[in-house]
Design a protein around this nucleic acid. Structure first.
Lengths: 121, 121
DNA sequence: TTCACCTGTCAGTCTCAACTTACACATGAA
DNA sequence: TTCATGTGTAAGTTGAGACTGACAGGTGAA
């Protein structure tokens, strides 16, 4: 998995760092499931599960797609997306460094003055 | 870094998964600092920084120790603890599996007799 | 004494994610 | 029609974490 900036890293960590969502991941690891079925298995209300799945999807941890069953019902299936993030000091420093690079690319925010290269201090 | 159960994993993720705390880690990566100095650098109130450092320390990401400076002032220094956690589906499944093992070891809760041997599965 | 540093903690407020309840809307089967 | 199944969303409540401000205590130096 490629390097992330702080924002992406935080989104990822926030997504995974929740007991319910860990359970969701564990459950989806056994195979693809549609929302209502997953809600039943986990003993969670469907709207709540929706919120969690939305969060996981935004962070790229799960993928959802709407399918028609044989009897014409619409089922929203979710499956696990492959992910693998190494978390150590280097990862975090890299994320911070990417933030700076992003800001520079965008050109906005800090009016250029900021030391263009090298770390201050 | 050795395998963690869900509780430890969540504590770790919650500790790292916060913008301010990422900045703290980034700052401490440059070297050991005492609280007031760190607060100044980050532009954060000291009580707030305390809370964050406490959280980081509980999760084992930083280590704090009180030192006497030459002029007799007490300074609370914090340094980064080495950490390295791989985050993928396997990590999470392993954590879930450890939870079960922990519960069995503790013996309570599940009126489980003592299961004679081995890990279920 | 007063000042400028530091540590440590408490009592609040505020904000937001988490969670509940309820609705509108489909389908197929009884 | 009614029931059981599903999706999708829009309210509300709540609870925990984040954050502020103020305090009590210590030191050494002016």
């Amino acid at each position: 998995m490629q390097a992330m900036n702080s924002e992406e890293l935080l989104a990822f960590l926030a997504a995974v760092g929740h007991a319910q969502r860990l359970r969701i991941i564990t459950e989806l690891a056994t195979g693809t499931l549609y929302v209502s079925e997953l809600a039943r298995r986990l003993g969670v209300s469907r709207p709540l599960l929706y919120m969690h799945l939305e969060r996981l999807e935004k962070a790229g941890l799960v993928i959802g797609r709407l399918e028609l069953s044989d009897d014409g019902k619409a089922l929203k299936y979710f499956e696990l997306a492959p992910f693998d993030v190494q978390l150590n000091v280097d990862t975090i420093l890299t994320a911070a460094r990417l933030d700076g690079a992003d800001a520079q690319r965008d050109g906005s925010g800090e009016a250029g003055k900021h030391s263009p290269k090298g770390t201050p201090q």
